[in-house]
Design a protein around this nucleic acid. Structure first.
Lengths: 330, 330
DNA sequence: AATATATATGGAATCGATTGCATTAGGGGC
DNA sequence: GCCCCTAATGCAATCGATTCCATATATATT
């Protein structure tokens, strides 16, 4: 690869002048600029990003942390992030935390060494107090997951509303025995906590007492959903509806229900969360909460780049719309 | 961040000695080594990867090109690649080609500037003649997709066998009117071509003439599958079975069949390809060809790192097993 | 005409590591 | 006691860019 010195030599100018041309600095005569541009062209020169990086320039690389890329919600998010980043000339480094605190921190360390300019966290495993110190090495933007103080730029959805809409819909369908299922723990913070609040609010408004036996925590996969259905079948007093924290769990429930000849929604109404492609594939099709993944990814990249290129930009929280999509499972 | 000079100063040694300790060179006395290690510990020092990179060291970053990350086949592949890379201390840069030649090349360019040590291509859009020149800047490994000469390290499956198994299975079920559906074009190369060969071989062995009206090319999504079913419905002479190039297309066919009260497999038997999670979610569950994504990703990383750390390693092709999984759709 | 200001240009230091070469101190062989 | 070799160490160059500072010229201001 040609270096800046090669260009300098060929064009008969100094490295300084070449660098000025590259970076569009003022005070370069038109004549020399053209000489330099011609030499660059001739050599097929592109500046070495590593060298620039060492000088403390931007790396044009953004890191993204997801819990698991195979979860369609996150692969859709990564998809929109990558596309938006590419359009702006940025690269995307991904890491899966697998919900592991140590791995999350290992990845945040890339900020320290200027391996990435900023990191988009789509999930938070460590406490914010642990993560916060890293913000001084680079921009950390929270997308999807969030903390309950305005400490970092955030792109989020009104999770409380999401859960509220789902539960209210079940109530309106006449259900009183409603089970609730969440990915986190019941006393979680951030996203999980807000969903729980929405659940509680809707139940309270409908004057229904929450039955703790119908609360399932830490549920994520199709497999988890299948197990939930089996547990419900074993209950003397069964719920007539269930709100799940994810389409995958809902899918597991529906699939297992079929095995046991339970009719959905007659015997059990099911609400998912995410509006993943499987929601339309399931039979019956899944009523679920739609999160605009594409918008979230795009907006995250836009805000991130704005913050990087203009560090004095004010830190803000952006809230995107969240909606209930009624299909056949309720 | 602490630099090597800080460590040198604190330990009272030269940068050279510190560097020797970091890189485990011989000729450092035990006494000084410990002094240096203590200083490193105290300062929380980690070498700056950017600076190392500039000196021509490895970047410990691997690039991965996928067509679309939202395709579960590829997100599973990326998942296993990322996990394996993390275990070896490597980072993963991803790019989606979206089947776009220019974007594929843009990403290959990262090799030139030593932004990545090597690239794992899970799909090939440009002709190999265009890609080949990039191999001199870094390692290019083909995983999943491949070319028909042994020009690069490849991790592949016997695609011919995959298609052959699927078609043969349909033949054994008594089908004679078999439709065939592929992601590429019918005269493709690499993966697509080999699948076509398997199809042709199985048909020939069963003495069935291929009906060109039952060949569908360039099909990828659930939506495509739905359209295919509608086209079949409009035919006077309908196939009784269809082999699809992907579970997604198969899903579209099954979903749309349900809309038109067509029974599967009675009216139309369907074979997918990939064994994605939806294969088990669909009703009826999908008979499909299982590709070991996890093994492929893991093996790719292993071979890649071997080639990077030991450049004289011989270029080889690795073939992994491919199997038919019979479920309810046939 | 003298001075201030804007425009152009290049030399050399710098970022944080690695490494070739030179130097020194000991140990062994004769 | 002299020579040679090995082990241990550090100086300074290097990777490929950016940027501070000095300098030179042209133009504007008094």
């Amino acid at each position: 690869m040609a270096t800046i010195s090669d260009v300098a030599k060929l064009s008969g100018q100094s490295k300084t002048t070449v660098s000025r041309v590259i970076n569009k600095h003022p005070y370069v005569s038109e004549e020399k600029r053209e000489l330099v541009l011609k030499a660059m062209e001739e050599l097929g020169y592109t500046p070495n990003p590593t060298a620039r990086r060492l000088r403390g320039q931007l790396t044009t690389t953004i890191g993204v942390i997801v819990p698991r890329i195979v979860n369609p919600f996150f692969s859709y998010l990564v998809n929109s992030i990558e596309n938006a980043a590419y359009q702006k000339g940025y690269q995307v480094l991904i890491a899966q935390s697998n919900e592991d605190k140590e791995k999350e921190l290992a990845f945040l360390n890339l900020l320290k060494n200027k391996q990435v300019d900023g990191i988009i966290m789509t999930s938070i495993v460590n406490d914010w107090e642990i993560i916060e110190p890293y913000t001084k090495y680079g921009t950390i933007l929270l997308c999807n997951d969030y903390v309950n103080q305005e400490v970092a730029p955030m792109i989020r959805l009104d999770q409380t509303k999401g859960a509220y809409l789902g539960i209210k819909h079940l109530v309106e369908k006449g259900h009183k025995k409603i089970a609730y299922c969440t990915g986190g723990l019941f006393d979680a913070h951030g996203r999980g906590r807000d969903r729980n609040l929405g659940f509680q609010k809707a139940m309270q408004e409908a004057n229904i007492k929450i039955n703790p036996r119908w609360i399932f925590v830490d549920q994520h996969t199709i497999e988890d959903g299948k197990i939930i259905l089996k547990q419900i079948l074993e209950m003397d007093d069964r719920p007539t509806a269930i709100f799940t924290g994810s389409d995958e769990v809902a899918a597991g429930i529906i699939i297992e229900a079929k095995e046991h000849s339970l009719s959905i929604p007659q015997d059990l109404a099911v609400v998912g969360f995410d509006d993943q492609p499987i929601a339309e594939i399931l039979d019956p099709k899944l009523t679920t909460i739609c999160q605009p993944m594409d918008q979230m990814g795009e907006k995250s990249v836009k805000v991130m780049i704005e913050l990087l290129e203009n560090p004095k930009t004010q830190i803000k929280t952006y809230e995107l719309p969240i909606d209930l999509i009624v299909r056949q499972s309720t």
